[in-house]
Amino acid sequence: MFNMTTEALEKKNALNTATEIHQQPDVWKELVAKLSDQEDELNQFIQSIYDKHEHVRVLLSGAGTSAFIGDTLVPLLRRENRGNIQFDSAPTTNVVSNPEDYLQKDVPTIMVSFARSGNSPESVATVALGEKIVDDFYQVVITCNKDGKLATNIKGDANSVTILMPDQAHDKGFAMTSSFSCMMITAYTLFTDNTFDENAITAAEKLIDALPEKIDDILGYDFERIIYLGSGMLGQLSHEAALKMLELSAGNVVAVYESSLGFRHGPKSILNETSMVVVLLSQDPYTRKYDMDILREVAGSESDMKVVALTEASDAEVEKLADWTIPVSSVSESLSGDFHLALLYAIVAQTLAMKKSLQLGITPDNPSPDGSVNRVVQGVTIYDYDE
């Protein structure tokens, strides 16, 4: 995998992370089949709530990477759903400290909890706050762990449903990889009428085979800062891409994110001769114009920094501007929208972070062996909330 033997990955404590990135196309196949089998049951559950109320709020929530699933999906869900359904995203880490800012008593709410373990204290507390504050409260738990508190706490609750990810998606490594993409596919399938484009699976298989050589070439540049840029849902995905690098490099690489247009408004100050800018180019022709403008701008800098462009297919202009261009899809048909591009871009960001971690002599499966950062967060005190 990734131009490394299993023995080498195991020795460097990277086997779990590498496996969990590499396996994603296969796990997606299993997940899509599973969701198809559950389609009628899940649709009936959601539709019964929609039918019961004139207005329904769907609040997508999680902590860390799990929160970024909601952030990435909300622009798409708002565009593709009818007006009486309100989609919002809020990290559990915000809801717990300021519940009245995020939970509305008189607004019927479906809380969608994304969780790898289902045991993060903020995630469990957010549900408890929802039950306490919101009059008409429903739950969808999308998790990798059937034994986690989020899943076990709603057994027998007619107003709640749990959707379990394939067993392989329950990442053993520190960073969320398979779990992130699988939970995102699940919410997309549940809350849109769109069929998952299985061309994305074929594209991912080919991408993973071709990616290692390109990533190894990029790592010939010893960057100390990385900036991910994108627009719309890809701008939100850039948050997750930056976090992967920050986590797996144990903070040795400064990793930030911004929207393509927002970057000029101050954040551009971060650029120096050790920087790498990664532009996530949209498939949408209108949005792509703005992504291309920032690509031209950063590519035209006289600094020694480098630029990477992620795009769906080969593009001569992009290749001329960027130091490295990664076309993520080699299938003949165009993918159906930026959602599917986001899944492929995530694989690139995950792989780059893992390989950078190895280059720095860090162990990706446990980049923080001193315990300062943990796979399931520790050290959180949850206080009683009194309305």
Rank of each mutant, 00 (worst) to 15 (best):
G300R: 02
P25Q: 03
S275Y: 00
S61A: 14
V376M: 08
V307I: 10
P267S: 05
A115W: 03
Q24D: 13
S329V: 00
L360V: 10
L281W: 01
I142C: 13
C144M: 07
D338C: 07
L261G: 13
C144P: 09
V373K: 02
L343P: 06
N16Q: 07
D193V: 02
P267N: 11
I227Y: 00
S301R: 03
T109P: 01
M184W: 04
S36F: 06
A200N: 04
A349C: 11
V373N: 02
A210R: 15
L73F: 00
F196C: 02
R264S: 05
S259N: 05
T72S: 14
D338E: 08
N16M: 04
M184I: 06
N94E: 15
A342K: 10
S48H: 12
E240N: 08
E302D: 14
E387C: 09
K34D: 07
I215E: 09
L341S: 10
N366K: 12
N194Q: 15
L190Q: 08
A115H: 03
V308F: 06
D40T: 09
K29V: 05
G173S: 13
F68T: 04
I21E: 08
G62K: 05
L341E: 11
T195E: 15
I85W: 04
G230E: 10
V56F: 12
T72I: 13
S334E: 11
D293V: 05
S97L: 13
G220A: 04
G148D: 00
S372C: 11
Q350A: 04
V328T: 06
E54D: 11
S123K: 02
L150W: 00
F223L: 08
D51C: 12
E39I: 09
W28C: 10
L344W: 06
A353Y: 02
L207C: 06
D171C: 08
S303R: 15
N81G: 14
V112D: 03
D291W: 12
I46H: 09
L341F: 12
I208Q: 12
S48T: 13
V328K: 03
K34I: 04
E387H: 14
N252R: 15
D386K: 15
F2S: 01
T93G: 10
R375S: 08
I215V: 15
L150V: 08
S259C: 05
V107P: 00
T65Q: 01
T363W: 05
D51W: 03
Q86S: 14
G266W: 02
A67C: 13
L358I: 07
N98M: 14
F2A: 02
N98E: 12
G156P: 08
P99F: 00
